[in-house]
Amino acid sequence: MSLLEARGLSIAFGGVRALEQVGFTVDRGEVLAIIGPNGAGKTTLFNVVTGLYRAHGGEVRLDGRDVTGLPPHALAARGLARTFQNLEIFFRMSALENVMVGRHLKERRRLGAELLGLPSVLRENRESRARSRDLLAFVGLEERADEPATGLPYGALKRLEIARALACEPRILMLDEPAAGCNPVETEEIDRLIAAIARQGVAVVLVEHDMRLVMRISDRVLVLDQGRRLAEGTPSQVRSDPRVIDAYLGRHGVAAAHAA
């Protein structure tokens, strides 16, 4: 039994079949990469698995239990966290507060105590603040903790989302293009982060176009094309698969993939 298993997921938007019978499994400490050309359905797969979209067919299992169709917050409570390709930041809050929101499920949230500002609430605030600062340090943003999130550059916001997702203390972390728009130095930083996260026993599902990053860091790679599974295997199997080269990597991509 896998930690997270998706089976036969299908969804269509009008005439577009964004996913057709797609599945994957991922386990503790493992890094699964999902790659494929633009519009292949990678983000849609994330949205279905995390409960933002409802699949027209197929199922999602966590610890072997059926969680298909559960709302996102219920899935988060079961240990599923994610980041967004097109940033979903709380822009009216500071960087630190963004991460603190990620601690939501770890906080007790008793409304009466919160309204009265009881010492237990203040203690919990302090604890959340401290934990969140640690996480900001982990992603290299400790210096910008108290800045409003609006002012942070794109690369910092990508890492802020990772810190927020980690604040949920997830068992499964789904990262949608964490290195997009990052320079090579930042990409290498993200590479290190993901490896460290996986080493802590978190299952990582990674969507990424940077082939060097994917090949270096993944245990397995799932290739999607036009909503279908094109191939799956180890990085070396996938990068020499002629169908993958045709549909996605091309000659340039193969060079990048081998350079890793």
Binding site: H73, E88, V101, E124
Partner: peptide
């Protein structure tokens, strides 16, 4: 200045992001 208050401010900015962290 509480967990609920932060959750409310969060969903004001992004309901999607708030829901995936468990709100």
């Amino acid at each position: 200045d509480s967990s609920t208050g932060r959750a409310l401010r969060a969903l004001h900015d992004s309901e999607i992001a708030a829901s995936v962290v468990g709100v």
